[in-house]
């Protein structure tokens, strides 16, 4: 029960950190990794109910690493087009 409360609390906290206003895009990508970390904890806890089938953690890590790499490549693409990674300058789509 304590573990459940702790993991839910960590998830909500990481979502809060992800959604809060940042100056750089890189910090948002970093807090995306914080969400992944808290979900990793929660997933490893909940996989105990599925016969300790911890192999799924491997798949989870693969997909989350792909997602992080995709975020970084978007960051590179943005730096090439905009010149910086400030959220202030991402406003041409309004």
């Amino acid at each position: 029960m304590l573990i459940l409360n702790f993991s839910v609390f960590t998830c909500l906290l990481s979502l809060l950190v992800f959604c809060s206003k940042r100056k750089h895009l890189l910090l948002t990508l970093l807090s995306l990794e914080f969400i992944v970390l808290s979900l990793y904890f929660m997933l490893s806890f909940s996989l105990m109910f599925f016969n300790y089938e911890f192999f799924f953690l491997m798949i989870f890590l693969t997909f989350s690493v792909c997602e992080g790499a995709l975020g970084l490549s978007i960051l590179v693409s943005l730096v090439r087009t905009h010149g910086n990674d400030y959220f202030q300058s991402f406003n041409i789509l309004w």
Binding site: I74, S77, L78, T81, F90, L93
Partner: peptide, 14 residues
Amino acid sequence: SKDLKSTEASLKYF
């Protein structure tokens, strides 16, 4: 990667 708009759109979508 040569287009300003589509890069920003893909960032927001991501």
